[in-house]
Design a binder for these strands. Structure first.
Lengths: 131, 131
DNA sequence: ATACATGCAAACACTTTGCAGCACA
DNA sequence: TGTGCTGCAAAGTGTTTGCATGTAT
């Protein structure tokens, strides 16, 4: 065997395309939207490949995966941890301007033996258009 | 039309069964688990009915609906707002002992015209068995 | 009596997977 | 030159819905 821990990933056109597309879209697109955008220029790229690469790129930390309760997961070019708001009307996902609470995990009084290593806050509300 | 706002709901056996089952299960069951439990005694109740009643009962505030990112939504007999932890190992959902932050919505610095009316925190980690 | 509720199955939305062929390293 | 990747289609998971029938009020 040849040592390293970095699982040797290949730099395919499709993978580059997925990364660049997410980085170019600043509106928290879901896999479907990313696929649609890619398909405009490259109709031969399959949806399964988009899903596979989204998962891989977010595992690599190159994009941020945002699991959305009651909806399709979406992805963010901005990898700094931050919070999101989901509009109850249109389902859109938006960034929330709120200082990130690094110590929130330590607010847990009694963890009963759990190891807590992260958390997610999703606010819900109505965007200006949906009010 | 006859006035009131309370949508006149019927007190069916199936609805009572769903409510009582959720109230008797204290481990954050999802719809599938609730359906399975009901089916043990009442195999004729259909899954669609379980889903329909879970939605209705949580809308009525009789049970708590917990949308889980990356997993089936689950339900809680405890309707007081509280936070949950999802184990990355077994997928189980557990209560978190942490004071509820009533004012968290007001921490949002700039809401850009959004009306924020709620939020959900889901912690992730590993339960004692999965460590 | 009549609207609301049910059971069933099919549809739905989102995501993953099996497999044969392709292409990056 | 071989293993990682792709495209396709099919399957998987969680949930909703159309419709005919049933039942609580």
């Amino acid at each position: 065997m040849r040592g390293q821990s970095d699982t040797k990933n290949r730099n395919t056109l499709q993978r580059r395309l997925v990364l660049e597309t997410v980085q170019s879209m600043h509106n928290h697109p879901d896999a479907e939207a990313i696929y649609a955008r890619i398909s405009m220029e490259n109709p031969l790229v399959s949806k399964a490949t988009v899903y596979r690469n989204l998962k891989l790129l977010s595992k690599q930390g190159l994009i941020l995966h945002i699991p959305i309760p009651d909806g399709a997961d979406c992805f963010d070019f901005n990898c700094c941890p931050h919070y999101h708001l989901k509009c109850r009307g249109c389902g859109g996902v938006f960034d929330v301007d709120m200082p990130y609470q690094n110590d929130l995990c330590s607010c847990v009084v009694n963890n009963r033996g759990f190891v807590i290593d992260g958390y997610q806050i999703v606010f819900s509300g109505l965007c200006p258009e949906c009010q």
